[in-house]
């Protein structure tokens, strides 16, 4: 098995795939981190921003709308990641394995 690992590691396609996948997962990770910590920091520093109604005469505030958006964003990003990983990345992984065996 170690032998096989070494051959895969030496395969440029593997590194191409790895780079692509790493960029993609860190991109999604930073989106969720930024979204979540901006949410927390706004609550800590500028809570009044979240108290504004989304339009005049509405009781619904920006805070509630944004909180729900963070929940939906989490769902959306996990969906996007799995769609791409299960279709594109898994196929590339299989290509690499076929190449070396």
């Amino acid at each position: 098995m170690q032998h096989l690992y070494r051959r895969i590691y030496a395969n440029p396609k593997f590194h191409q795939l790895e780079l692509e996948r790493r960029r993609f997962s860190w991109l999604l990770t930073s989106i969720i981190l930024i979204a979540y910590f901006s949410f927390i920091l706004i609550i800590a520093f500028y809570p009044e921003l979240f108290g504004n109604p989304i339009f005049e005469d509405s009781v619904i505030t920006w805070g509630i709308l944004i909180a729900l958006s963070v929940i939906l964003l989490s769902l959306l990003l996990t969906g996007i990641y799995v769609y791409r990983a299960n279709n594109e990345f898994d196929r590339l992984v299989n290509d690499v394995i076929k190449d070396v065996t």
């Binding site: 999604l28 969720i32 979540y36 949410f39 805070g63 909180a67 963070v70 929940i71 990641y81």
Partner: peptide, 23 residues
Amino acid sequence: FDGLIYSIGFLVGWPIILFLLAE
């Protein structure tokens, strides 16, 4: 509103698990 702060904290760990750890 404050109840949402916990809900969201409990939820956002999941995308992180998926992107960085699960597979």
